[in-house]
C-alpha cells in the first residue's frame, strides 16, 4: 500500500489524468483521419476534434423548459465519472496511487455510473428519441458489462489481483507467454470496446438518422458546453478502452519507475500502440456495416462467449492441479 502513496506518485497520477483528457480528442481525430484516407478523402485536420470542443465550449447552452436539474447536472457527472475511470488505467507508468484507489471492478462501476446518468439525461426532457436512445444504450450496456467483467476476471485470475497495476506488473515480470485465455479475453474486450464506445457495427458516431441512433439520440437535446462535456467524455471512453487493451495485453514499453526516461519511453510506446489500434479500428469501421439493433445482442453474446471461454480455458488449460 505504502509504495503506491508517494508524493511523486500523486503528482504523476494528476499528470497522467490530465494527459487522458488532453489526448482523447487526438485519438478520435486520428481514427477519423485514417478512415478518411481509406475512403480516398483528405479528411479533416488531425486536431479538428479540439476545435470542435473549443467551439462548443464557447457557445451558449440551451436547455428545454421541461428539463429538470438532473439534465444540467448529468454532463458534469458523466464527464467526471468517465475521467476518474480513465485515471485508474495506467497510461505511462504503473504503480500510481489511482490504481490502488479503484481497481478494475470499480472502473467498470464508474463507467456504469456514467452510463446510467447518460441514459437518465436522455429521458429527462421527455422526447421520444431520448427514451429510445436510453433504452438501447441500456440494452447494449447490460450485455456488454458482464462480458467486460468476465474478460477482466480472466486477467485477474491469472495475475491473482484486480489491481490493474499489479496485473500489468505480473505480465512484465512473466515475460512473453502465449495464453489461450488472453486471446479470448482480448477478443471479448475488443468487441465490448467497440460496442461500448458506440462504434460501427453497433452504433455509428457520424449518423444523421435519428431512428438508427443510440448514443447520439440521448444527446440530441444538449448544446453548448453541456454537449462539449458529453462529447469529450465519449472520446475519453474510447481512449480508455484503447489504453486498457494496449497496456494490459501488450504491456511492453510502459514505464516502471518515475524517471524521465521511463516516462518518455512510456509515452512513446503508448502513442505507438494507440495509433496502431486506432488504425485497426478505422479499417474495421470501413469494411463493416452497421448492424440492425437486434443483431447487437448476437454480437455481444459472442463477446460474452469469448470471455467465458477465456475463463474456462484459463481454468482448464493453464492452471491444472
Amino acid at each position: 500500500m505504502d509504495n503506491y502513496l508517494t508524493l511523486p506518485g500523486w503528482v504523476l497520477a494528476v499528470f497522467q489524468s490530465c494527459l487522458y483528457i488532453a489526448l482523447a480528442p487526438l485519438l478520435v481525430g486520428w481514427v477519423r483521419k485514417v478512415k478518411a484516407r481509406l475512403q480516398n478523402r483528405r479528411g479533416a485536420p488531425l486536431f479538428q476534434a479540439y476545435r470542435d470542443l473549443y467551439k462548443l465550449l464557447a457557445k451558449e447552452a440551451r436547455v428545454a423548459h421541461t428539463a429538470s436539474p438532473l439534465f444540467r447536472a448529468a454532463p458534469y457527472i458523466v464527464f467526471t465519472a468517465t475521467w476518474m475511470a480513465a485515471a485508474t488505467v495506467p497510461l505511462l507508468v504503473v504503480d500510481l496511487p489511482t490504481a490502488a484507489i479503484a481497481d478494475i471492478i470499480v472502473l467498470v462501476g464508474l463507467l456504469a455510473l456514467a452510463r446510467v446518468f447518460l441514459a437518465l439525461a436522455g429521458m429527462d426532457v421527455g422526447t421520444a428519441f431520448g427514451g429510445m436512445g436510453a433504452s438501447r444504450e441500456m440494452l447494449i450496456g447490460a450485455l456488454a458489462e458482464p462480458a467486460m467483467l468476465m474478460a477482466v476476471f480472466t486477467l485477474a485470475m491469472t495475475a491473482h489481483s484486480t489491481n490493474l497495476s499489479s496485473v500489468i506488473d505480473y505480465h512484465l515480470v512473466d515475460g512473453f507467454v502465449l495464453r489461450p485465455s488472453y486471446l479470448f479475453a482480448l477478443g471479448g474486450l475488443i468487441l465490448v470496446a467497440v460496442a461500448e464506445s458506440g462504434r460501427i457495427p453497433i452504433d455509428n458516431p457520424t449518423t444523421h438518422l435519428e431512428l438508427t441512433m443510440i448514443h447520439e439520440a440521448m444527446l440530441l437535446e444538449y448544446s453548448g458546453r453541456h454537449l462539449a462535456l458529453m462529447e469529450w467524455s465519449a472520446q475519453i471512453k474510447l481512449l480508455l478502452y484503447g489504453t486498457l487493451i494496449a497496456n494490459v495485453f501488450f504491456p511492453w514499453g510502459i514505464g516502471r519507475g518515475f524517471g524521465a526516461a521511463a516516462l518518455g519511453l512510456g509515452l512513446a510506446a503508448v502513442l505507438a500502440k494507440l495509433a496502431a489500434l486506432g488504425a485497426v479500428l478505422a479499417v474495421g469501421e470501413t469494411v463493416l456495416a452497421k448492424m440492425r439493433l437486434f443483431r447487437a445482442p448476437e454480437f455481444l453474446n459472442l463477446a460474452l462467449l469469448l470471455s467465458l471461454l477465456g475463463l474456462l480455458s484459463h481454468v482448464i488449460l493453464e492452471v491444472g492441479a
Partner: peptide, 19 residues
C-alpha cells in the same frame, strides 16, 4: 448487476423524469 441498472433507469426515467 447490469440488468438491475436497466430496471432502475427505467423506473427513474419513466416515473421521475420526462413529463
Amino acid at each position: 448487476g447490469a440488468l438491475v441498472a436497466v430496471t432502475f433507469v427505467k423506473v427513474y426515467g419513466v416515473a421521475f423524469l420526462g413529463q
